[in-house]
């Protein structure tokens, strides 16, 4: 299970375009109206660079 040690956060800028999930190598982001990191997230921060609205805060 995902615990508090993970630091990736999706802020209110997120529109749910899914660009992050397409570039996530671990398939760790669920998108439905908004992106959500799942337990598979390892905080690699790759997705953050691809977000067009600066919604993923590392």
């Amino acid at each position: 299970m995902k615990s508090g040690e993970y630091t990736m956060k999706v802020n209110d800028n997120c529109v749910g375009c899914g660009q992050c999930t397409a570039f996530c190598k671990l398939d760790a982001i669920e998108v439905r109206g908004k992106a959500n990191m799942t337990a598979a997230c390892i905080d690699c921060k790759t997705c953050s660079a691809y977000c067009p609205v600066k919604a993923i805060e590392a």
Partner: peptide, 11 residues
Amino acid sequence: LLIQSYSNDWP
């Protein structure tokens, strides 16, 4: 496959 939504700053 994927549900993508667009609004605000990425509309």
